[in-house]
Simulated assay, not measured.
Amino acid sequence: MDIKQLKFLIALDETRHFGQAAARCHITQPTLSMRLRNLEEELDLPLVNRGQRFEGFTAPGERVLAWARTVLAAYDGLQAEAAACRGHLVGTLRLGVVPLSNFDPLPLLQRLHSIHPNMRFELSSLSSEQILDQLASNRLDLGVSYLERLDSDRFDSLELAETRMGLLYDHRHYSFGDEPLSWESLTELPLGMLTNGMHFRQSIDHNFHSRGLELQPLIQTDAVHQLLQAVHGGFCCAIMPLDGGLESLTEHLRLQPIEHAQTLARLGLIMRRSAPRSALAEACFGLYQKMIQTP
């Protein structure tokens, strides 16, 4: 067994296609199939359900896949740790961020890249539950998620600024003056919303219901980009983070503050406490701590 076999297994899981997995790993499909069969023979377990095409993993294959991810993360962490001991940081920092966060990762990543030009970055949009799960299983290095019910024995965190809300609209279709909008006035507008279950949506629902107001969205989606497209087309307006920079995406978008509008919980930058902990995560966490402490 070697690291490459585990990489092949993970690539197959991520692409769900033998040919695409082989292309991602820069090998031929017969080579990929042969190496995976060698792994099955060594473990004496069937890992992959094969037909004319990929049909998923067997139950033992799913368990081996979870171990493969852990082993590969540890291998990458070892390489990064060795580089850190030599005074350099290399490898890929894996950062998960909840949808519609007011956290802009770009300044932090730019600072890191300027200091450590061999670093690479992988950003994922995930739910709070997914972020904590993947931090715990070492599939993420850092997460930006809500701090409510965070287990401080398992995770370190840096609290971020309060998330305020505003109304995102296309000024070619709507105009609202200069004053903050009331929640009552929003009930008269065609609103686009993220689907139920997302934390940001829960905060919106709470602000309406706590005022005895009924929310009837014109459109609901679980994809932020579709919501932005609907706003840009003038089909609806959308409640978004006020400090998320969304209004700068095009010259036509505007963000109008909403009075007394905050999310139910604060966001935080989160890193797991248990070893092995990524040297990349520690460097990023420490740099951001300095950035928010500097006036």
Rank of each mutant, 00 (worst) to 15 (best):
M1D: 09
D2I: 02
I3T: 13
Q5H: 04
R16Y: 00
Q20S: 09
P30F: 05
S33T: 04
M34T: 02
L39S: 03
R50C: 04
R50K: 14
Q52T: 05
G56R: 10
F57N: 12
V64G: 09
L65V: 07
W67L: 12
A68M: 06
A74D: 15
L78T: 10
Q79H: 05
Q79R: 12
A82I: 07
V90T: 14
L95N: 10
P99W: 05
S101C: 09
F103K: 12
H113D: 11
P117E: 14
E122N: 11
L123D: 09
L123Q: 12
L126V: 01
S127F: 00
S127C: 05
S128D: 15
S128A: 15
E129M: 07
Q130A: 13
D133G: 03
Q134Y: 01
R139F: 00
D141V: 01
G143M: 12
E148T: 09
E148G: 08
R154C: 10
F155K: 13
F155A: 11
L160N: 10
E162H: 03
M165E: 14
G166Q: 14
L167M: 15
L168Q: 09
P180M: 13
L189D: 13
G192Y: 01
M193H: 08
G197S: 11
S203M: 02
I204G: 09
H206I: 00
F208R: 08
S210L: 03
S210R: 11
G212Q: 06
L213I: 01
L213T: 02
L215N: 06
Q216N: 06
P217R: 10
I219D: 04
D222G: 04
D222C: 03
V224P: 04
Q226P: 00
Q229H: 02
V231A: 13
H232C: 13
F235P: 00
F235S: 12
C236K: 08
C237Q: 12
C237E: 13
I239H: 05
I239F: 03
M240L: 07
P241G: 12
L242D: 14
L242M: 09
G244Y: 04
E247M: 04
L249F: 03
L255S: 14
Q256P: 00
P257D: 14
I258L: 09
I258A: 07
L264Q: 13
A265P: 01
R266P: 01
G268D: 12
G268M: 11
G268Y: 04
L269Q: 12
L269T: 09
R272P: 01
S274T: 05
A279G: 14
A281I: 01
A281P: 01
L287M: 14
L287I: 13
K290N: 13
I292E: 15
Q293Y: 06
P295C: 15
